[in-house]
C-alpha cells in the first residue's frame, strides 16, 4: 500500500503543502468573483465619472463629478434614497415579526408531521417565481380585487397601490429567506432552556424576548441580509404594486439606456448601504450561517 503514495506525486506534493492546496482551491473562484464581478463593479464606479454627449447622447469617457453631485444634492433623489432605505428596513422588521412566532410554533409546538408540512409550505412560494408573486399581489390588492372583496363585510378597505403595499409585496417575496434560518435556529435551542426560563417565573412573551431573541440573533441577521438588500434594489414590486412609489432601483433602471453614467452614480447608493450592512453583519459572524 505504501507504494501508492510514491506513485501519486501531485497528491503527495499538495498534501505536504497546505498553502498550495489553499491556493489551488481558491484560484478559480476568486478569479471569477474578483476578475469578473468586482472588476465590473469597479468599472461601473469609473463610468459614474463619465458623461453623456448631449449632442449624440453617446457615453464619453472623461471626469465629471456632476452625476454624484446630483445624487447628493437633488432633494428628490435624496428622498427617494431614504424612502427606499425605510422600505427595506420595514420589510426586514415585518419579516422578523412574523418569522419568530412561526419558527417557535414549528420548532417547539407543532407535532413532527405538521412541522414538516409547514417547512414545505414556507419553502414552496420561494420557488413559485418572483414575477408570478408580484402579479399575484397586484391581483389581490386591486381596488376591486380579492382583498377588498373579502374585507368588504367588515368595512375594511385596502390602501390601493401605494408604499404599504410595496412593503407587503416585498415581505411576501423575501419572507422565506428570513423564516427558514430563524426556524432552524430556534430548533437548535434546547427545550429545557424554555423550561428554566418559565421556572424562573418568566411568562411566554418574556421568554421569547429574553431567551429566544438573543439566541437567534445571528440567524435573524443572516436572514436580514436577504430581506434588506433584496428589497433595497428592487423596482419591479414598486412598478406593479407601488402606484406612485419611486425607489432607487427605478431611478437606476430609468437611466440605464439614456444616461449610463447617471445610472452608475445612482448604483453607488445601494452599494454603500449594502456594504455597510454586510460589514456590520460580518462582525457578528452571521455571514457564515447564511
Amino acid at each position: 500500500m505504501s507504494t501508492a503514495t510514491e506513485s501519486r506525486p501531485i497528491s503527495t506534493y499538495l498534501f505536504r503543502r497546505p498553502r498550495v492546496r489553499l491556493f489551488s482551491l481558491l484560484a478559480l473562484p476568486m478569479t471569477w468573483i474578483v476578475g469578473v464581478y468586482i472588476l465590473s463593479l469597479f468599472l461601473l464606479l469609473i463610468t459614474a465619472f463619465w458623461y453623456v454627449d448631449p449632442f449624440t447622447s453617446l457615453v464619453r469617457p472623461g471626469f465629471t463629478l456632476d452625476n454624484f453631485q446630483a445624487v447628493f444634492t437633488e432633494p428628490a433623489y435624496i428622498s427617494t434614497s431614504l424612502r427606499t432605505l425605510w422600505i427595506a428596513l420595514a420589510v426586514t422588521i415585518l419579516s422578523v415579526i412574523f418569522a419568530v412566532p412561526l419558527g417557535l410554533y414549528m420548532a417547539k409546538i407543532a407535532p413532527a408531521w405538521l412541522r414538516n408540512a409547514l417547512a414545505v409550505a414556507i419553502t414552496l412560494p420561494l420557488w413559485a417565481g418572483y414575477l408570478v408573486k408580484i402579479i399575484a399581489m397586484r391581483l389581490v390588492f386591486t381596488e376591486e380585487g380579492f382583498f377588498n372583496w373579502l374585507m368588504a363585510p367588515f368595512g375594511i378597505k385596502g390602501p390601493g397601490f401605494s408604499m404599504p403595499i410595496v412593503i407587503l409585496t416585498l415581505t411576501y417575496l423575501w419572507f422565506p429567506y428570513m423564516a427558514l434560518p430563524v426556524y432552524t435556529a430556534i430548533r437548535q435551542i434546547p427545550t429545557n432552556l424554555f423550561d428554566a426560563s418559565s421556572d424562573l417565573g418568566a411568562r411566554g412573551f418574556m421568554t421569547i424576548y429574553r431567551v429566544v431573541i438573543p439566541l437567534i440573533t445571528p440567524a435573524i441577521i443572516a436572514g436580514s441580509v436577504f430581506t434588506f438588500s433584496l428589497s433595497l434594489g428592487d423596482y419591479l414590486a414598486a412598478r406593479f404594486t407601488g402606484g406612485a412609489t419611486q425607489m432607487i432601483g427605478s431611478m437606476i433602471a430609468a437611466n440605464i439606456n439614456l444616461n449610463p453614467p447617471m445610472a452608475a452614480a445612482f448604483s453607488m447608493v445601494p452599494i454603500t448601504f449594502v456594504v455597510i450592512y454586510l460589514m456590520v453583519a460580518r462582525r457578528t459572524g452571521s455571514l457564515e450561517r447564511m
Binding site: 447622447s57 428628490a76 406612485a244 419611486q246 437611466n255 439614456l258
Partner: peptide, 15 residues
C-alpha cells in the same frame, strides 16, 4: 432643454 435634462427632471417628479 435636451431629452437628457427631461429624463433627470422626470425622476425628481416622483421624488
Amino acid at each position: 432643454t435636451s431629452f437628457q435634462e427631461w429624463t433627470n427632471a422626470w425622476l425628481t417628479v416622483k421624488g
